[in-house]
């Protein structure tokens, strides 16, 4: 089977974009030529020494583990809440104002306060990541459950399904594509919250390596860590997107990149 040149081009476009960005960086650094702005190639060459160093690797993996736990708990609690908000107006008007107040509060900024209460251990960091993940997942599950066609629910009720059964067998599958969009945003936010909270708490983890290197003036390490974190973000997103395509094949989202990434 022949694959058209166009298809190859469109599939490799993100890769080309990465190479293009690295190329622009390389040229800018060569033109700039200062210590604090190494070229892309120098930064890439520093990556093996970070990943090869046992302590940094353990730190980064511990960060990722906390991120996965925070993300998991966030999704498990946020999806049911969002679904209930979408199906019951009372629940929605009960919870919405509280969420509106919490929304503009930077979750990673709670780190110093939470550290006062829970210490500097894993629990504080996981809690902050959980808070960061929850809001977009709640919001998207809410939107998804709200948009379920009433007729389907009526037919299910007429066929004798109870309210709980309707929730699991009609509302949940119907809202699934939207829930996945929320999870995709939540996953990126989990990574962001993880890095930011580590930058603020400065105890351990990937964010700490990044800022320690900045303080010590190890510019190569700073830029190499930026590449590692950036690659994690892009890689996690691409992996999640392909998982979503497999699980909810029947629904193609109108937008291929969620608007509320940040």
């Amino acid at each position: 089977m022949m694959i058209s040149a166009r298809a190859v081009l469109s599939r490799s476009a993100p890769l080309l974009a990465c190479l293009g960005l690295l190329g622009v960086w390389q040229v800018a650094a060569l033109a700039h030529n200062t210590d604090s702005f190494p070229t892309a190639w120098e930064a890439i060459l520093t990556i093996p020494s970070i990943v090869g160093d046992k302590e940094s690797l353990v730190n980064i993996l511990a960060s990722l583990r906390r991120m996965a736990i925070g993300f998991g708990i966030g999704v498990l609690l946020a999806v049911p809440l969002g679904l209930m908000m979408g199906r019951s107006r009372a629940v929605a008007s009960f919870v919405n104002p509280l969420l509106m107040i919490i929304y503009p509060v930077p979750k990673a900024a709670l780190m110093p306060i939470i550290m006062l209460w829970l210490g500097v251990g894993d629990v504080a960091k996981i809690l902050v990541i959980f808070l960061g993940v929850s809001l977009p997942v709640i919001y998207h599950s809410f939107q998804g459950a709200k948009a379920v066609e009433e007729k389907m629910l009526w037919s299910a009720a007429a066929m004798g399904l109870s309210a709980t059964q309707r929730m699991f067998r009609i509302a949940l599958p119907a809202a699934l594509p939207e829930i996945f969009t929320g999870c995709r945003t939540g996953l990126v936010l989990a990574l962001i919250t993880m890095i930011t909270s580590e930058m603020i708490a400065r105890q351990s983890g990937a964010g700490n390596i990044l800022f320690n290197a900045l303080d010590l003036g190890e510019y190569g390490t700073v830029y190499a860590m930026i590449i590692i974190v950036g690659a994690l973000g892009i890689g996690l997103d691409i992996a999640f997107e392909s998982l979503r395509r497999k699980l909810v094949k029947w629904s193609e989202p109108g937008f291929d990149i969620p608007v509320d990434f940040a």
Binding site: P14, A17, L214, I234
Partner: peptide, 25 residues
């Protein structure tokens, strides 16, 4: 055709990780 792949790559990138570079630059 140029903007789309760039956005696809840059949107999920944790921008806060760029902050040290911005500080240096």
């Amino acid at each position: 055709a140029v903007v789309r792949p760039l956005v696809r790559v840059l949107a999920p990138l944790p921008k806060v990780a760029l902050y040290p570079a911005l500080l240096l630059l």
